[in-house]
Amino acid sequence: MFCNKEISGLEDLRGLRVRVGDQSAANFIGQLGATGISMPFGDVQQALSRGVVDCGITGPASANAGGWPEATTTVLPIALQLAINGYAINLDTWNRLDETQQSQLETAIAELSDDIWSYSEALYEDAMRCNAGESPCEFGNQYALTEVAVSDADLAAVTAAVEEVSLPLWATQCNNVAADCEATWRETVGAQLGL
């Protein structure tokens, strides 16, 4: 969460306008007392500069590359979104591979996954240092944002918003596609996450 107003936590978002990427995120932000404004990433830096929005949500490396720290003063490093990537192969194609090829492909994908996680973590840490004006700053531009510590109250607010807004809205959409979607998710992924 990058803001051009001084904030000490999510409670300070009440009444502020927050750039989000989509309507689901806008609903989530609404639960926190702010107004979510959907806006393309490329428009955010100027909107922050002009006061059209008070805050914006993105990852620290994306914010750095987009120049958001030029128009903000504070960063709250709390995860409010997530992206999922996956690799798939057609079963007929898979079955045409011999056991050695299947094993090599599985090994390569596992190594790629490990490399992506390692790189993502290093990029995140570097971008946070760059945004706060700390060294080393290897991949981005140095700025001087104030980094606000994430509190237990912030984490509780996110949990409540996920349970009260995000999951119910998602479940409705998912159940419209497959009637047992929510039930299956809750029995599997939801059970693993304690949701």
Rank of each mutant, 00 (worst) to 15 (best):
T188I: 05
V53E: 02
L48G: 05
E138W: 07
N175F: 10
L97N: 09
S24F: 08
R96K: 15
R50Y: 06
E125Y: 00
E125K: 15
L80I: 04
L167Y: 10
L76Y: 05
C174Q: 15
D154V: 01
T188R: 14
T159Y: 04
E106I: 15
T73Q: 12
D180E: 14
T107E: 12
S135V: 08
E164I: 06
E6G: 03
R96F: 03
T74D: 14
V189Q: 03
Y87I: 13
F28K: 02
V189E: 01
I37N: 03
G67K: 08
I29P: 02
G30L: 01
C174R: 11
Q45G: 13
V158A: 02
A47N: 09
E182I: 05
Q46W: 03
D54Y: 04
Q104H: 10
P60M: 07
A61P: 02
G42S: 15
I37F: 01
R129Y: 00
S62G: 15
A191P: 01
A71W: 01
L169Q: 11
T93R: 10
A156G: 01
S166Y: 07
I7A: 03
L91R: 12
G56C: 04
E163F: 02
A153Q: 02
I116V: 15
L145A: 09
N85I: 07
Q81S: 13
E138T: 13
A144T: 10
E6F: 04
G194F: 05
L167Q: 09
A160E: 08
Q104A: 11
Q81F: 09
V53T: 08
G59W: 00
I37H: 05
L76S: 05
D54P: 07
A88H: 11
Q102L: 05
T100E: 10
A127T: 00
M1H: 05
S113E: 14
Y124F: 12
W68Y: 13
N27Y: 07
E125V: 00
L10R: 02
L32A: 02
V148Q: 06
G59I: 04
N141P: 01
V53C: 04
S113D: 13
I57A: 03
L48I: 07
R186M: 14
L82C: 03
T74I: 03
L112V: 08
G51M: 09
E70Y: 03
V18R: 03
A25Q: 11
E6K: 13
G66A: 15
V177M: 12
L123A: 14
T35S: 12
S135H: 13
E11T: 10
L91D: 13
V20Y: 01
G140E: 12
R186S: 12
T184F: 09
S38L: 01
I57V: 14
Y87T: 13
V44N: 05
W94Y: 14
A26I: 02
I109F: 11
N64F: 04
T184C: 10
A191Y: 09
V189W: 06
A191V: 04
A79E: 14
V44Q: 11
T146A: 12
I109D: 07
M1N: 06
A183Y: 05
E121D: 15
L13S: 01
G56S: 15
G51F: 10
Q23P: 00
I84R: 12
Q101H: 09
E106C: 06
E121P: 00
E182G: 05
